[in-house]
Structure formats: structure tokens, C-alpha cells
Design a protein around this nucleic acid. Structure first.
Length: 481
RNA sequence: GGCGCGUUGGAGAAGCGGCUUAACUCACCAGCCUUUCACGCUGGCAUCCAGGGGUUCGAAUCCCCUACGCGUCACCA
């Protein structure tokens, strides 16, 4: 058995998409666990839409996710170059071979003509395949067209014959009739090869053994196999991973939320969490554990457990996974990640550390930290909920708040420890239960009976805000502190 | 329209002819823990596998039909 060689071959027409990242990950995992090679190649034959900027973004996102390749763009390897526009000669040679063997031919039909035929065929409910009009052009006809300055495309001859069978690791054998394919274009009139052609030439020359990619490529696979057959090459083994859908079960797109890896990076997700989540999109682990580091995934991953069913992108689950990773972070790390989201407010240093400790268990993504700011910033506490009002109707409330206010006035600093001590003393002095003391203070300060540790919140508020909120609460309840 | 793929609880997702009284995860609910909240822990949550036929002693699992969803039919990848 020859060495496993897989590849990820994105086209640089935009930032790395979640689906692309998942394909890259599956290839990476498959390569790693089989001690194989993982190649990254750039498919930039769409001159109009490709950009170096997108290529850069894709590479950065892959690095960020920790998906590294051992051969390909930037780092080189035995099959250089790894950018398709730098391999044009290679495709030209392959096309030339097909032309000489009569397996491909020049076609001079205009786009308008083809489009008209296509529409007509579609209207009649027929296969919108190319008619094959240029199949048997004589040398004279061809010369005339050339003289007229018409730039031809090259089409592959796809004759009737046995159905084309795709051997697929996730779908088994899928068969396609040849007449459903037609004579398709392999080289555009500007001499640039078309995806279905270039991909075959590259995969073969690069010794790719397994092609793991999204299901949207399944219908294209018979065309590629036709190219392999024409060139007399052995096709690789395919594996078409199901599509990623939004929760409404339509293909994942912008309206379902962010679709690019950078967007999740910016929103405060950890790469480990995103990788973990991506792995679960279409693959299911054997046991009940769902938290996997990329190293764990290399061991646990298996193509046998890759599902045929489309995978639904469940953002709630991503958040939960991110929370799992976030909670494992040491406080110094957490501080580093959270810092950018609070920089504009001037929260840093010790205060930043306290913010992180206070909310670590309450956030699933770093940017969620912003949702909690009103809890300790500003003179106004959140309006009291009905439940909170009920708690504040207790007879002991005024006593507790007055005592708390007085005790804090004597404390030289408002720190978690001093607040905690004060609260403890009040319990003892008034002989009250914990909730009877903590609740009134919590509600007075935040308006809600739920939330993070009240001693930390009070410390974050600082004396001034704390006092103002206490006074406002007292006033609302009809007494002075 | 042709071709291809899919359809299991509120959501994700196992299951590959008898071991299934349908795993597991999220969400939700209840209880425990906690001075509160959260974290964590424990328990509850599909009489049923899109619908209809068929094969079989036996089907979520195999076959056929219908419905629905998605993908693809480019000189895009």
C-alpha cells in the first residue's frame, strides 16, 4: 500500500470558509493518522475572482486553527509549484496529449450559441449538454475559424459507454451515466484550464491517493474520472463529506451567521474549540466524550464514522464547546484573550484580572464579556425584576442594607475580601441566613437575584458606584441609609 | 427538468436485520452542591425512526413508490 497523500486545494476567492476549514481538517486528520502527507495547493485558475489577499487569509486561518501542512504553498516540496497559475505548462502538455489522441478537440462555438442551445434543451426537458458540433471540424474549417481570430476552447470527448462509478469512502459506489456529462470544456479560450481538468492533472502528478472534499463536488466527480480515463491514469479514492447546513437545513450561508473562520476568531472563539466543533460536523466519535484536542482527534478520527447526512451548524453547541475550553484556561491566559475586548474602556491590569475571575464561568466566548459590563459600570443598576421586588419586600432588608452601607463606609477599601467580611459579620450580628443577607445586597447593587459573586461585583463597582446604587435602591424602597 | 445525495426527540447525532424497553451531546425541566448565580453532579425528556407499500420468523436498519429538503448540471471552484 502506497503512502497516503491527501490535499486541501482551496480557491483563493474569499476568506477561509467554515466548510473549507472542515475539509482541510478532515484531510489533515486523515493524513496524520495514516502517517501520510498533507499537501496544500492553491487553485487560482479563476483569474477574475482569485486574489493574493484571499490566499493570505486562508493560510493565516489554517495556521490559526493549527492545521499545518508538510508540503505545498509557502513551504514547497517535491511537486512544486503549488499554485495552479504557475503550473500552466503542465496542463498545456496534458491537453496536448488528449488533442493528439483525438480524445479532446477545439471548439469554436460562441458562448451565446451554447447558452441558446442550453436554454432550448432545458426548455424541452432534455440534457443541456454540448451538441458536439465542433467534434469533427475539418482542417480547413478549423483554419478558417482561426483566421477569423476566434479563440477556441478545448473540450473533452465523452462518448457513450459504461456508466462511470465513483468509489467513495463515505457513500460507497455511486454510479453516473455518461450521457449526463457531455463534452465539457477542459481549457478555456484564454488557455487557462478549467477546474475539473486542472484538479485531475495536479492530483495525479502530486501522487494524491485520497480526495476528501465537500459533497458539492460529488456531481463533478464523474467528469474528473472521465479525464483520468482519457489520460490513462488511475483515479484516487474519493470521500465526499456531507454539506454543512444552517439550522433551517439550507446550505450554510451568510444569513445563518458568520461563515468565515476569521469571523469566529474575531468574535472571541478559541481555535481549539472551533477545530473540535468542526470535527463534529459530519463525524461522530465512538464514545460519549465530545471534547477533543486536535491530537485526540488524530487518534479518534475515522472515515468509517463520517456521516452521509448533512451536518447542521449548531452555533449553540459551538458556544458550549468554546466555554468548555475557555473554562480550562489559566487566569493569565484568559486575561490575554479578554483584554482586547475591554481595551477601549481602559480596563486593564489588576482590574482586568478581577473582571476575568468574576465572569469566567458566565461567558462562552470572549466578546460576551461585554454583555456583563452594566452589572458593575454606571450609576444605574438594572431595573428590578418582579422576583427581585418580592425579595426586597422582606422585613429585614432595610436593616441589612443600612448595616452593609455603614460597614463599607468604615472599610478602607472596597475589595472582594472586605465585602465578604462585612457580609459575614452582618449575618452573625443580625442572626440571619445567608440568602437573607446576600440577596438584598445583590439586588440593590444589580437589580437581579442572579449573577456572579456579589463581593467581586461590588469590588469592580468601586466605592462610589456601589454607594450610589445602594442609595438609589434604599430610596426606591422608601428609606434612607 | 435530468442526475446525485439525504430525511431518527426542541436542536445536533449514534444506529449498518435480532444484544434497542432507539446511545451520546446541547437546550429545557427537577433535585443536589453553593451564603446567590454560574460551574459541577444526579435524574427526567422519541411507545418510536418523513409517509405508504413490500421482503423477512423478525426492519429505524433491505427493496419500491410518494412527499419534502439539499447539491449539481458554467470558458466558477
Amino acid at each position: 500500500m502506497s503512502k497516503v497523500r491527501v490535499r486541501f486545494a482551496p480557491s483563493p476567492t474569499g476568506p477561509l470558509h467554515i466548510g473549507g476549514a472542515r475539509s482541510a481538517l478532515f484531510n489533515y486528520l486523515y493524513a496524520k493518522q495514516n502517517n501520510g502527507d498533507f499537501v496544500v495547493r492553491i487553485e487560482d485558475t479563476d483569474l477574475e475572482r482569485s486574489s493574493l489577499e484571499s490566499e493570505k487569509n486562508i493560510k493565516e486561518s489554517l495556521h490559526w486553527l493549527g492545521i499545518d501542512w508538510n508540503e505545498g504553498i509557502d513551504i514547497g516540496g517535491p511537486c512544486m509549484p503549488y499554485r495552479q497559475t504557475e503550473r500552466l505548462e503542465t496542463y498545456k502538455e496534458a491537453a496536448q496529449i488528449l488533442l493528439e489522441k483525438g480524445l479532446a478537440y477545439y471548439c469554436y462555438c460562441s458562448e451565446e450559441e451554447i447558452e441558446a442551445e442550453r436554454q432550448a434543451a432545458l426548455a424541452k426537458g432534455e440534457m443541456p449538454n454540448y451538441s458536439g458540433r465542433c467534434r469533427n471540424l475539418t482542417a480547413e474549417e478549423k483554419a478558417a475559424k482561426d483566421a477569423a481570430g476566434i479563440k477556441p476552447v478545448i473540450r473533452l470527448r465523452v462518448d457513450e459507454g459504461e456508466p462511470i462509478v465513483v468509489k467513495d469512502m463515505v457513500r460507497g459506489q455511486v454510479s453516473f451515466e455518461r450521457d449526463g456529462i457531455g463534452d465539457f470544456v477542459i481549457v478555456k479560450s484564454d488557455g487557462i484550464p478549467v477546474y475539473n481538468f486542472a484538479v485531475v492533472v495536479d492530483d495525479h502528478l502530486m501522487g494524491i491517493t485520497h480526495v476528501l472534499r465537500g459533497e458539492e463536488h460529488l456531481s463533478n466527480t464523474p467528469r474528473q474520472i472521465a479525464v483520468y480515463q482519457a489520460l490513462g491514469w488511475e483515479p484516487p479514492i474519493f470521500g465526499h463529506i456531507s454539506l454543512i447546513l444552517g439550522t433551517d437545513r439550507t446550505k450554510m450561508s451568510k444569513r445563518h451567521g458568520s461563515t468565515s473562520v476569521v469571523a469566529y476568531q474575531k468574535e472571541g472563539y478559541l481555535p481549539e474549540a472551533l477545530v473540535n466543533f468542526l470535527a463534529l460536523l459530519g463525524w461522530a466519535p465512538e464514545g460519549e466524550e465530545e471534547i477533543f484536542t486536535i491530537e485526540d482527534l488524530v487518534k479518534a478520527f475515522s472515515m468509517d464514522r463520517v456521516s452521509k447526512r448533512p451536518a447542521v451548524f449548531d452555533i449553540e453547541k459551538l458556544k458550549w464547546i468554546n466555554g468548555q475550553y475557555l473554562r480550562k484556561l489559566p487566569i493569565e491566559e484568559l486575561v490575554k484573550y479578554v483584554a482586547p475586548y475591554l481595551k477601549d474602556l481602559g480596563i486593564e491590569g489588576e482590574r482586568l484580572g478581577l473582571v476575568c475571575m468574576t465572569f469566567a464561568n458566565h461567558i462562552n466566548t470572549f466578546n460576551e464579556i461585554r454583555n456583563f459590563l452594566p452589572l458593575f459600570m454606571g450609576e444605574e443598576a438594572e431595573p428590578m425584576t418582579e422576583e427581585a421586588k418580592a425579595v426586597m419586600a422582606e422585613a429585614t432588608v432595610a436593616q441589612v442594607l443600612k448595616l452593609f452601607y455603614a460597614k463599607m463606609a468604615l472599610a478602607d477599601e472596597v475589595k472582594p475580601e472586605t465585602v465578604k467580611t462585612a457580609l459575614k459579620q452582618i449575618r452573625k450580628e443580625l442572626g440571619l441566613g445567608g440568602a437573607q443577607v446576600f440577596m438584598p445586597v445583590r439586588i440593590a447593587l444589580t437589580g437581579n437575584q442572579h449573577g456572579p459573586d456579589i463581593d467581586k461585583l461590588a469590588a469592580l463597582m468601586g466605592r462610589e458606584i456601589m454607594n450610589i446604587r445602594l442609595q438609589k435602591a434604599a430610596k426606591a424602597l422608601g428609606f434612607e441609609l
